[in-house]
Design a protein around this nucleic acid. Structure first.
Length: 461
RNA sequence: UCCUCAGUAGCUCAGUUGGUUAGAGCGGGGGACUGUUAAUCCCUAGGUCCGCGGUUCGAGUCCGUGCUGAGGAGCCA
């Protein structure tokens, strides 16, 4: 007999006989004549109710079953006699596969997210985290589907990099040297020539420069993989290891870049609205009351676009007082971004053309000499969701930008090669995957949307 | 990294101006009852009050310090 996943069993027309279900017990209620088991195998939120008649062979073993135990059930799908579910499984055989002892930490009792983080290996068996990780998986699959449909090439950018000049944050060093007793040069400095790669190496903080190289040859590409930041930042929105999506398109300007970003965000949200209904309804009920309304609104609204210059003007004209004043030339604070997208615009907004002084060297310089072709997508309730830009494709301008930062163009030789040999306008953006999962689920802590999160001082599991 | 707050039973929490034997609900064990829905009812076991040091006749409670966690800020994705 072949196993049926519970989500599928629930779609079968009842009555249906001879099903084999396997999963883990969420709750058991034993009566004199009948026992009820809520069985869950991770394929959906609700699980399925298994009804075990009191006269069944082996009923004594069933009565001793505990929350968390793994079992196999053979039975028939029938219309439910009780309230609360339309169908249930009338068991003809129940087999204990793996018993959970009475100290199983996930009892049928509300537990704090903080506690569940301490049992990350078990928390996927809870309602909330089962839903989070189903949605996360669906979003990941949906990302590949979106780009695949548009002819993008999926590029695996390297995890280990030797360039420490990307400037996106503190990097984790990768080394095989004995940290307690490294080889040293005559001057007493650590001799990186002796290290595995013959020079200092790090975990990547971004795949963008690699993606650019592939875009300038394969046209439309994207990366989707893990990224590492050694920042000692302890917030609900930062992790040391997270996933990032970075599309990069040749022969593409800032406006077309925004077009893609808008389609992309809407596609992802529409997918989870369509395919993860039960999970999203749970989030809407238990985690974030406004979730469904907000997501539906975003999917249905055209995104606003305005320049940074205009955004600053509208923020100043709003009369709103901010903890940090708004001025042309300063980065927008979280409070500014939220006010702009939530109050002034009321829907997602692309803010474009930031002062060059607050953006990265590789962003394309505008003709005004003052701004660059950067774009941030701000969304209600979260703030910045996407950051991107048109890339500087002109070799001489790019070299000047590097020198202005007191960096050496020679250190970027392979990157500059792409501008020497058949350069072309191109643009792209980066989206923190976990930010999207948080946005889609209403979860407020990044540690609760990553299966086994890594943050400063936390590398369990 | 900075600021603020917190740490009491397996979990979620209460614990008064410092005062006798630190409590409740859920979960666990035993029983009753029941087509049940986080079932219900009775009985029961279960504690390094985060660690260390101090003040005091007396500390879960006050002070210092360390550890851990959370929220906020900065940085960013």
């Amino acid at each position: 007999m072949k196993r049926t996943r519970i989500a599928h069993a629930l779609t079968l027309p009842a009555p249906a006989s001879g099903l084999l279900l396997k999963g883990w017990i969420r709750t058991v209620r034993n009566g004199k004549n009948v026992s009820f088991i809520n069985l869950n195998d991770g394929s959906n939120m609700s699980g399925i109710q298994v009804v075990v008649p009191g006269e069944l062979d082996g009923i004594e073993a069933v009565r001793k079953l505990t929350t968390g135990s793994a079992i196999e059930v053979v039975g028939d799908l029938v219309e439910s006699q009780g309230k609360g579910q339309s169908v249930e499984v009338q068991a003809t055989k129940v087999t204990t596969v793996g018993r959970a002892n009475e100290d199983y930490p996930l009892q049928k009792k509300g537990a704090s997210f903080e506690f569940l983080r301490s049992i990350a290996h078990l928390r996927n068996r809870s309602n909330t985290f089962g839903a989070v990780f189903r949605v996360r998986s669906k979003l990941a699959q949906s990302i590949h589907a979106f780009f695949s449909d548009r002819g993008f090439v999926y590029v695996h950018s390297p995890i280990i990099t030797a360039s420490d000049t990307e400037g996106a944050g503190e990097m984790f060093r990768v080394t095989t040297l004995d940290v307690g007793n490294p080889p040293r040069t005559d001057k007493g400095e650590v001799d990186w020539n002796e290290d595995f790669f013959g020079k200092p190496a790090y975990l990547t903080v971004s795949g963008q420069l690699n993606a650019e190289a592939f875009a300038l040859g394969m046209s439309d590409v994207y990366t989707f993989g893990p990224t590492f930041r050694a920042e000692n930042s302890n917030t609900t929105r930062h992790a040391s290891e997270f996933w990032m999506i970075e599309p990069e398109m040749a022969f593409c300007d800032l406006s077309e870049n925004c077009d893609l970003a808008e389609d992309f965000v809407k596609h992802l949200l529409r997918t989870v609205l369509d395919d993860c209904q039960e999970d999203l309804e749970f989030f809407n009920l238990r985690i974030d009351k406004g979730l469904l309304e907000r997501l539906t609104h975003v999917v249905d609204s055209p995104f606003e676009r305005m320049s940074y210059r205009e955004a600053v003007k509208r923020l100043k004209d709003s009369g709103q007082s901010f903890e940090y004043p708004v001025e042309f030339g300063v980065n927008l604070q979280a409070e500014h971004e939220r006010f702009l997208t939530e109050k002034l615009v009321g829907r997602p907004v692309f803010v474009t053309d930031y002062p060059k002084s607050i953006k990265a060297f590789y962003m394309r310089r505008n003709d005004d000499g003052e701004t660059v072709g950067a774009v941030d997508l701000l969304v209600p309730a979260v703030g910045e969701l996407i950051g991107g830009s048109a890339r500087e494709e002109r070799l001489d301008v790019l070299e000047d930008a590097i020198r202005e930062l007191n960096l050496e163009p020679e250190d970027y030789s392979w990157y500059l090669d792409t501008r020497r040999f058949g350069t072309a306008p191109h643009a792209g953006f980066g989206l923190g995957f976990e930010r999207m999962v948080m946005y889609a689920t209403g979860m407020q802590n990044i540690r609760d949307v990553i299966p086994f999160p890594r943050t400063p001082r936390n590398c369990e599991f």
